[in-house]
Design a protein around this nucleic acid. Sequence first.
DNA 1: GCCAACGTTGGC
DNA 2: GCCAACGTTGGC
Length: 141
Amino acid sequence: MAFWLFKSEPSTWSWQDQIAKGAAGEVWDGVRNYQARNFMRQMQIGDRGFFYHSQEEKSIIGLVEVIHAAQQDPTTDDPKWQCVTIKALQALPNAVSLYQIKALPALADMVLVRNPRLSVQPVRVEEWRIILEISGLNPPG
DNA sequence: GCCAACGTTGGC
DNA sequence: GCCAACGTTGGC
């Protein structure tokens, strides 16, 4: 199983919106960045992800699961753009802020720190575990 | 194929 | 509101 991070502006698509979709989930559409698309192509059903709010909050606030592999992005007819479907699993007991992440040397190499603009990112398993621990989720996973 | 110009994103 | 970083576009 691989781990990812999905970044969203809460004013456009929020964690609450994602929760509201329930088990059916929602397509992560609208991505027009090759790196982000390529990561989505690598995703498999059952992969886990962080849900991150940019802008004001700048925090990881929830966990999601990939429930459908990459398919045609419904917001365009251009076949080069695909997107996965994700569903909300649970909110983190405590949101983990970008400030907290930057304060930890072990997380200094996170893509979120290195390239905060990338909307879909890979997360290393060590990074995944550390963030879950900070969030108060135990045991991690 | 290179690179300058431009637009977008997101942190501060 | 500003600016740095990044990706894309288009002229050459």
